[in-house]
Design a binder for these strands. Structure first.
Lengths: 394, 394
DNA sequence: GTTATTTTATTTATTCATTGAACTAATTAA
DNA sequence: TTAATTAGTTCAATGAATAAATAAAATAAC
C-alpha cells in the first residue's frame, strides 16, 4: 500500500529525492530506501543525477522509468477515434486520429480501430504494452459485466468493445466514460494527491462530468455518476428525452448551440454563418468574432456556468475543469463567463475554495486519461504481486 | 487499520462470530482471533452466547460492549437544542430537549447547554464520557480552526462553541454541519460499508445535504459540500440572498412553505389556517388534510424532488434519505411525490441504482449522528494507541 | 586547510501485525 | 461409534515498517 503511495508520487513525472518522498509520505527514510530498492530491481524507477542545494549531502533524483511499461489509450468519439501509446509516466509516445465515416457500421469501425492498435503496438517492440484503456461517450451502464450505451451511441450497444479488444490483444482492457477519464487526466496533470476533489466537466455533444473525490475516481453505485447533462436548471423548461425538463445539456451542449444558432439564422439575424451550419462552422465563426455566434456561444457558457454553480454548491471541490468541444471554441471567453456567473451566484466563502480551469484547447486530455485509466487499473496488480512484470528489455 | 475494519463491522450493533468477521473482512481466522483478543482485553468487545446452526461447532457471538465508552451528542437548532448520551454501539442512553427562548442571547444558551451536558455526564458516573459531537445548522466554514456560521445563525458567529465545551469538559469536541451528521447517522443505521454512497437531504428551515462516499463523510475542500439549498432549479427564478436565482430552498424549505402558504391565505384561498400561521401550524393542517396546506406541501415536495433528480444524476448514490422538518410533515406523501417525479424525470437505468427513503418522523437521527461523529472521530485515536482507553469500571 | 555542521541515504537489529499450518473443540450426519 | 463439518486457537514464520547508529557528501566556520 505504501508502495502504491510512493509510486503515485513519482508518477506525477516530477523528480524527487528519497528524503523528499519520506517527508511527503510521512514514512521513515529507511522505508523509502527499501521501497525504492524494490522498484529499482523491478526497473520501475531509476536515478537521474544529483541536485545540490544548500549544505549537506546532495540529494539523488529519482524518476519513474517511463519506458518500463507501455499502455494504449483509446478515445472513441462519435466523429472520430484516437489511439495513443503512453509510458508509465503518462507521457504520450505516439498517437493517431481517424475520422469515422458516418455510414460505417460500428463493427467495421472496431476493425479499423484494432488495426491501428496493432500498428501502435508494433511501433515499438522493445517495450511491452501491458494494458489498454478505452474512453467512450457516456452515459452507459454496466450490466452483467457488459457495457450498455444509453444515448446517442445506441448502435454500438451490441458491440462488445472490451471483449473484442481483450480477445485480439490478450491483455487487460479497461473502459470508462470519457468525462471520467478526463477527470483522471487532470487529476494526474495537477499532481495527484489523496485529498484532491476535482470535477471535469465534458461539455461536448452532451454534457457529462467526471468526479474525483479523495484522489480517486468516484463512479457512483452503478457507474453513472456525473450525468450533469440531465441536471435541471429550469424545472419547467423544455422537455428532454430523459424525461426531465430544462436539462443543462439542452442549453449548452454543442448540439444545443448548433440548434439554437440555426434557429437564429432562420429568424434572419445577421451572421457570416449560413443556415444548416455545423458546430465546427460556429466554432470558426466565434474565433472570427462573428457577433451572433459569439453572443450565442456566450449564452451557452452562461448556462453552463449555472451548472458549475450547482456543482460548486453540491461538491465544494478544489478544482473544476471545463473541457471538450464547447471549451475548445474560446477557452478565455468561457472562463471569463464562468467566473462572472460564479462570482455573482455563489457565496464568496464557498467559491474561494474552488479553482476553475478552462481545458486546454487540444482535446488530448481524454485520450491521455484513457491511458492513465489503464495504468491506474493495472499497477495495483503489479505491486501486489498478483501479476508479475514482463521481463525487462536488455 | 484492520482493527478499525473489524470494529466498524461490530459497531453496527449486530452480533457476529469470529468466522463471520473473517469472511466479511477477507482476513484469516487467526487474525480475527488476535484482534478480538485485543478488543476483549480492552473491554471493547464481549462474547454473548452461542448460536447453533447446521453441523459443526457452534459459533460464539461477539458484540461491542456498548457501555465501555460513552459519548455526548448535541444538536443545536434555531428553536431548540437536544443533548443525548450514547454508547459505543450508538445506542441512545438518555436525551434531553430544551427550547430556546428567542430573546435569549447565544452565550446564555451555551451556558444552559453546558448545564444540561453536566447533568447527562453525571447521570452515569460509572461509564466515562470521552468525547462530544455537536451538530449545528449549516452552512458554515472553518477559518483558522474557528467555525464561522454563514447564514441564519449569524448571531452565533462570535460564540466559540467547540472551544467553550472543550474548556468546560476537558474532552475532545467535534463539530459538524447538521446534514452531515444526519448522513453519518443513516450510514450507521443502514449498516456502514466501505462502498456506500449516501446522501442525506436535510430539508428544514434551509436545505442542506450530507454526503457519504466510500463509506466516509465527504465534506469538500473547505467543508461546505452539500449546499444544495443553493442549487438553482430555475436559472432565472427569484433572487436568493446568496446571489443565485431559483435556489432550491426558495421553493421547499419550511421557511419557503410558510411564506407561500401565508401568501395564499392573503389571496383569500380557503383553509383552516389563519394568516401569520407558523410552520408548525401548517404541519398540523397537512396532517388534518387541509386542502390548501396539502396542496402547497405537495408542491414543495415536487420542487424538492427536482433537487433529488439532480442529485441522482450527479452522484448516482445507492441511497438518498430525505429528512428534517419538511420530511416529518408527511413522510408518506413526500416519498410518493419523490418517487413520482424521479420516475418521470430520471432515466430508468440510472434511477434503479438509487433507493430513496423518507426520514423517520422523529428527529433524533441528527442527534444520534452527532454522537456517531464523536465516536467516529475518537475511535481511531484509541485504536492507533495515540490515546489510551480510560480504566474500565470494576 | 581543518573541523564542525548539515543533509542524504543506508545498514542493522527490532517490533509488530498477519499468515499458514497444524491443532483442539464441539457439533451433526451417517 | 465414526466420519464429516464448522469454529476457533496456537505457534512459528513472514514481511513491512521503524529506530538508531552509521556512512557519505556537501557547506560553513574558524
Amino acid at each position: 500500500m505504501n508502495r502504491a503511495l510512493v509510486l503515485r508520487i513519482l508518477r506525477t513525472g516530477d523528480q524527487y529525492s528519497r528524503a523528499e518522498i519520506a517527508k511527503l509520505t510521512g514514512l521513515q527514510p529507511a522505508t523509502i530506501t527499501n521501497i525504492i530498492n524494490d522498484f529499482q530491481k523491478l526497473g520501475l524507477v531509476e536515478e537521474a543525477g544529483e541536485i545540490r542545494e544548500g549544505r549537506g549531502r546532495n540529494a539523488i533524483c529519482l524518476r519513474v522509468n517511463g519506458d518500463r511499461l507501455h499502455f494504449l489509450g483509446i478515445r472513441l468519439s462519435r466523429k472520430y477515434y484516437l489511439v495513443g501509446r503512453f509510458g508509465l509516466d503518462s507521457r504520450e509516445i505516439i498517437k493517431k486520429k481517424k475520422y469515422i465515416d458516418t455510414n460505417c457500421a460500428p463493427f467495421d469501425v472496431l476493425q479499423s480501430l484494432i488495426k491501428e492498435c496493432h500498428e501502435l503496438i508494433d511501433y515499438d517492440r522493445e517495450h511491452e504494452v501491458v494494458a489498454i484503456g478505452v474512453a467512450v461517450p457516456g452515459p452507459y451502464v454496466r450490466k452483467q459485466n457488459r457495457i450498455v450505451m444509453m444515448t446517442g451511441f445506441r448502435d454500438w450497444q451490441e458491440v462488445h468493445i472490451e471483449e473484442e479488444l481483450r480477445k485480439e490483444f490478450q491483455i487487460k482492457v479497461y473502459m470508462e466514460h470519457d468525462a471520467n477519464v478526463g477527470a483522471l487526466s487532470y487529476n494526474w496533470s495537477l499532481g495527484a494527491n489523496e485529498n484532491r476533489s476535482l470535477i471535469y466537466v465534458a461539455a461536448g455533444q452532451g454534457v457529462g462530468a467526471g468526479i474525483i473525490i479523495g484522489g480517486e475516481l468516484f463512479i457512483g453505485t452503478t457507474g453513472t455518476s456525473g450525468e450533469i447533462g440531465h441536471m435541471s436548471i429550469a424545472y419547467d423548461g423544455p422537455l428532454c428525452q430523459c424525461g426531465n425538463r430544462g436539462c443543462l445539456e439542452k442549453y449548452c451542449s454543442s448540439m444545443a448551440l448548433t440548434k439554437s444558432l440555426n434557429n437564429k439564422i432562420r429568424e434572419g439575424n445577421y451572421t457570416i454563418l449560413k443556415e444548416g451550419c455545423s458546430f465546427e462552422d460556429i466554432s470558426d465563426a466565434v474565433k472570427q468574432s462573428d457577433r451572433l455566434a459569439v453572443e450565442e456561444y456566450e449564452k451557452a457558457c452562461e448556462k453552463l456556468s449555472i451548472g458549475v454553480v450547482n456543482l460548486i454548491n453540491a461538491f465544494n471541490p478544489d478544482t473544476i475543469v471545463i473541457g471538450d468541444e464547447i471549451a475548445a471554441v474560446d477557452p478565455e471567453l468561457l472562463l471569463k463567463t464562468v467566473q462572472r456567473i460564479t462570482e455573482e451566484r455563489v457565496l464568496p466563502e464557498i467559491l474561494e475554495g474552488t479553482e476553475i480551469i478552462a481545458g486546454k484547447e487540444d482535446n488530448d486530455e481524454i485520450l491521455r486519461g484513457a491511458g492513465i485509466l489503464a495504468i491506474n487499473e493495472m499497477l495495483p496488480d503489479f505491486l501486489s504481486g498478483k501479476r508479475s512484470l514482463p521481463e525487462p528489455e536488455v
